[in-house]
């Protein structure tokens, strides 16, 4: 039971990841595949961030002592490193999404369709 409570967040994130993965490999529409890739990506971000969370922790920001009216005590901070890595990953993810979508636009101009099976049929005919 403690295992369940301690790990359920990973399992839900894995469910989210696998649903995104399913959209990528099972759908024939190219835009749908990019959507699936995006969902997968966001789920991976969540997986990283859940590892950085610490019990009773707070945001890793340390204001000046004069910012507090009373004594701030000795706060516990959640891990800052996953946040840093994921900030980089979000921006890189959008860059790759833009490139994939540009490729889809070109494919649509060349083939007149963005369905994978129809593209394959045209390729075999030519």
């Amino acid at each position: 039971m403690t295992t369940m409570l301690g790990l359920y967040n990973y399992w839900i994130v894995i469910f989210l990841m696998m649903t995104g993965f399913y959209v990528v490999i099972a759908q024939g529409n190219l835009v749908k595949k990019v959507i699936g890739l995006n969902l997968f990506q966001i789920s991976v971000f969540l997986l990283y961030l859940t590892m950085g969370k610490v019990d009773g922790g707070t945001t890793p920001i340390q204001p000046d002592k004069s910012f507090f009216s009373g004594d701030p005590g000795n706060p516990i901070y959640s891990h800052p490193l996953p946040s840093v890595l994921i900030l980089t990953a979000i921006v890189v993810g959008v860059a790759t999404t833009a490139l994939a979508l540009a490729l889809i636009v070109r494919i649509h101009e060349a083939y007149g369709t963005i369905e994978e099976d129809e593209i394959l049929v045209q390729d075999r005919e030519s």
Partner: peptide, 15 residues
């Protein structure tokens, strides 16, 4: 909620 407001802002704006 996972104490990553920087990532949350970026995800909301960029993602």
């Amino acid at each position: 909620i996972l104490d990553a407001p920087d990532v949350a802002f970026t995800e909301a704006a960029v993602g």
